[in-house]
């Protein structure tokens, strides 16, 4: 047990170092951007004294190293500055928008794991029948279509030809004001508000499909391969002799050995999925941080871009950390070493 704790601490330390690395890259890159950062922050009509004061406030009159130190201190204290285009505190904006993205991404992940897992298990059950190539082909096709194209195809089909789902937004304005937190879906699930749950789900279903379908196909492919590999082992044979059905062989014997590599891969792919929220949120006008990131880039809103990149970076690092710990938890060798 102490060993696993030690390796967990090691990973956490590594994650902290990586996050610091991201901060350095962000700092350097944004200093490369042509233009005076102060010029973008001042409100119109400031006097030269005010500008000089601001420059001193941000430590921009000091050396690059002291500038970095001041910048880092501000970041650590949660002072991300003010958005130029939206004229609001960046941290506040992030706190409003991040929950929307998190709900979307996690919903897509859950959907992908369930669908991908089901396809893999069914694929293993029907192996060597005519259904196997059919399933493989369907899976391969899902995989070949990127989330951007999925999103737009879904919009065409369910927006125009069978208009069943709302095409944009997160929640109908009529229910929007009743929330205490920005986690609308979780909050309405916890308070059992059926109408809100239905409304939010119907807004989320298409973006979730667009993000989740390619991931489901990847999970299905990898998990099926791992399952087939496990199914030829001797312990499966012995379990079969004990009279276990094929489904039980998969669920009770093979799955727990196949799941480790799949979890590791799903983690990496989940960071890609979060990357995908940027464009998918845009297509569905979903008010998350991804959609906001595009506006920030279009408007060259540097304080906001900086905050967004740091949040995305922290998310990716946290996911990788979580995956490492999860993989260890699924592997008895690591758990008891």
């Amino acid at each position: 047990m102490p060993l696993i704790l030690l390796s967990a601490l090691n990973r956490i330390a590594l994650a902290a170092v990586t996050l610091f690395g991201v901060a350095v890259v962000v700092f350097v890159l944004l200093r490369v951007v042509p233009g005076d950062p102060i010029a973008m922050m001042i409100s119109p009509g400031s006097t030269p004294e005010q500008i000089a004061q601001m420059r001193a406030n941000y430590g921009l009159d000091g050396s690059i190293l002291s500038q970095f130190w001041i910048w880092l201190k501000a970041i650590l204290l949660g002072d991300f500055g003010t958005s130029i285009s939206l004229r609001r505190n960046v941290l506040e904006l992030l706190a409003e928008r991040l929950p929307a993205t998190l709900e979307l991404a996690v919903a897509a992940l859950v959907f992908a794991v369930l669908l991908g897992g089901a396809i893999a298990i069914i694929g293993t059950l029907v192996r060597r029948t005519f259904l196997e190539p059919v399933l493989d082909t369907v899976n391969g096709t899902i995989l070949a279509v990127p989330d951007f194209v999925w999103a737009l195809a879904l919009i065409s089909v369910f927006g125009v030809f069978f208009p069943v789902f709302p095409l944009s937004g997160r929640v109908d304005p009529s229910v929007q004001n009743d929330f205490f937190t920005y986690f609308y879906l979780i909050e309405s699930l916890l308070t059992l508000r059926l109408s809100a749950i239905v409304d939010i789900s119907s807004h989320m279903i298409m973006p979730v499909l667009a993000l989740g379908l390619p991931l489901a196909a990847i999970i299905a492919r990898v998990l099926k391969e791992a399952l087939l590999e496990a199914m030829v082992q001797d312990y499966i044979l012995l379990a079969k002799l004990k009279g276990k059905s094929n489904l039980r062989l998969i669920m009770q014997e093979a799955l727990r050995n196949a799941i480790g590599p799949t979890v590791a891969l799903t983690g990496v792919q989940f960071t890609f999925l979060i990357g995908g929220t940027v464009i998918v949120e845009r297509i569905f006008a979903y008010p998350g941080i991804g959609n906001m990131a595009i506006d920030a880039v279009i408007n060259r809103d540097l304080p906001l871009i900086q905050g967004l990149v740091l949040v995305f970076g922290a998310l990716f690092i946290l996911i990788n950390l979580g995956v490492d710990l999860l993989v260890a938890a699924f592997n008895p060798r690591l758990r008891h070493a």
Binding site: V22, V25, L29, V33, V297, R300, V309, F312, F316
Partner: peptide, 18 residues
């Protein structure tokens, strides 16, 4: 490769312009 492509592209387009 440790740096997620989306972040990199946001930063790059922000730096390079459209």
């Amino acid at each position: 490769m440790a740096f997620p492509p989306v972040l990199l592209s946001i930063l790059l387009v922000a730096v390079l312009g459209s």
